[in-house]
Design a binder for these strands. Structure first.
Lengths: 325, 325
DNA sequence: TGCGTTTGGTAAAACGTTTTAATTACACGT
DNA sequence: ACGTGTAATTAAAACGTTTTACCAAACGCA
């Protein structure tokens, strides 16, 4: 706090021109100036170590070079990987990402939304179902919603083919000879989870549904309900639940895959490291993040272009948690 | 973008007072005004939906109510949990946290540091070893460094008792009858990892050291080196490595804990869900984050208080990945 | 009445930029 | 000598607050 800030005025002084000149030259509007002045100004800038004051700049040009990202649970490695993708492209475009962990708290997410708006973020990436699209729209900022289809034709969106993912899981189980199957998913599923279920039901119209939060704990608890049924295979709404199932089932003396085949969803890194290695539906997590960020940037650059919607594919990766009946 | 911003001037107009009055009242400096004007102003504020412009405010009062947090790898669940702790207390204090994923890239971390400084963050929480304390100091901002002891008496720090953690792991292994043991850790360990090693060597002065990055991949690769030795037990520098070891060992036809006892470090959530459940040294991860944030806030409130250093305890949690020889 | 003191409030400066319209200087053609 | 055009630069407004010093009116009191 000891060294005081060097201002544009001092640079102007040092190079013997007006502050308007300095501002323009340093912002690349170099057309109208003579080579000498240009070098003179730049030299002064370097020599004094001048950095334009961020807030003063923002007062004029209202953009902030900042994107707000809201995720529901930063503790879930899925979002860690997703953020990698988002953040990488944003950083390359010189944007700073403001990460907000909603912690599954609707109110908190709202607060964040308000505060970030006040702070003039240039756009939002919403990866949580908890924020309604109207709320978002009234903020009058570009936003893109991830993995959560909203009223279409009214916002950008990037989706993965959840329906296909659900079907893939079901088909694999069916091919393995399973007839009685269950899916564990939250009691109030978000749109994307619901689509996974729908896809699953394409093959198993009367699959059992077991309640379970989207977390390891949720899966662990769901195991108790599972063993009461006559199902021989489970489809977990995400990998975290599947991991929970592993433990919950073990606690009840059941083995995977001998007693229960289980299929996860996401293909998070850990899926490969768990025993037995988890058969799961792979989403291109990092690519998902990257694509999202790119689309938002495109929207910011060109606010009036037509709404775009992108669908990314998924695939089944067979490992060892599902076996023939 | 259609509705234009409502400014303090309009509020003043609406309540028939000057903008100075509005500003003061709305900032709680309510002492000098009559109850009626106060209510009148507040009413106008509410009625017009006035929100002070963030950037204009920041131009005057230089604080930004923002903390920059830099982590080396957001993909590692340890940092997810840590962030939970940090973010929760910051949010409660009305601070926004700007999360930056260093992605193990020194240069990127530097860039972030520069940019955040320019944007006037009120302080930094550094959880990565890659940024040097001098670099940090020259930013002239309060900062606190986590789990990484720097030149002491010159910055705040919160540490966990890594040395004790290392010793605990070693003692457990010794009690189980192991004599030949190894530790896997990065070739260029950071200060905290080095302390774990030192503690471990307290009991096993000539423990083998196997190179391995702090990731699942790192552990997986290290397994190959491990099986070349005559060690019967491994101490992994963190849980991620331990998980990697599980897989790597399995790929080589070895079983845990029958062939190798393994002990992890961190007690991340996953430790309980893996099979066999991982014996590990528990750090109070979320508390660690919370404490750090609190200390930084305290420093910001009172920049000249004496440097503080806090040491948090660790404990051994026995599960099933280490067994008697 | 006169005078210091409190009360309630405001004018104006300051924060550090960007941007627009104006100004100067000069060359050129007639 | 005079307009005309153009190239280089700048003065000044604007952005929306907070803060400080000052002011007028009312009050207390001998």
């Amino acid at each position: 706090m000891t060294t005081k800030k060097v201002t544009i005025r001092e640079v102007a002084q040092a190079s013997g021109v007006s502050i308007a000149t300095v501002s323009q030259i340093l912002n690349g509007k170099t057309k109208r100036f003579t080579p000498q002045t240009i070098t003179r100004v730049r030299a002064a800038r370097d020599q004094l170590g001048y950095e334009p004051d961020y807030f003063a700049q923002r007062m004029i040009t209202k953009d902030s070079k900042t994107i707000g990202v809201i995720v529901p649970d930063i503790t879930n490695p899925f979002f860690g990987q997703l953020l990698r993708g988002i953040e990488a492209v944003l950083f390359r475009a010189n944007y700073i990402t403001m990460l907000c962990d909603g912690a599954d708290d609707r109110l908190k997410e709202r607060d964040y939304l308000d505060e970030l708006t006040r702070r003039g973020v240039d756009g939002f990436i919403i990866s949580s179902a908890a924020v309604a699209s109207e709320t978002l729209r009234e903020k009058q900022r570009p936003f893109i919603v991830l993995d959560q289809k909203m009223a279409s034709g009214t916002a950008d969106a990037v989706l993965t083919d959840d329906r296909q993912g659900g079907r893939l899981a079901a088909e694999h189980l069916a091919a393995l000879g399973h007839q009685r199957v269950a899916m564990v998913l939250p009691a109030a599923p978000t749109a994307n989870i619901a689509r996974r279920l729908a896809g699953f039901q394409t093959v198993f119209p009367d699959a059992l549904q077991i309640d379970g939060e989207l977390s390891k704990q949720g899966g662990r608890a769901a195991a108790k309900a599972l063993v009461q049924t006559d199902a021989t295979a489970v489809f977990a709404a995400n990998d975290e639940i599947a991991f929970g199932l592993y433990l919950g089932l073990a606690e009840l003396g059941k083995r995977v895959p001998e007693d229960y085949s289980v299929i996860g969803y996401d293909d998070t890194e850990m899926a490969e490291y768990v025993t037995p290695q988890l058969t799961t539906i792979a989403q291109p997590i990092t690519a998902l993040g990257a694509t999202t960020a790119e689309m938002l940037l495109a929207r910011i650059a060109q606010p009036d272009k037509v709404w775009e919607e992108r669908l990314l594919g998924v695939e089944l990766v067979k490992r060892f948690s599902a076996k023939p009946l």
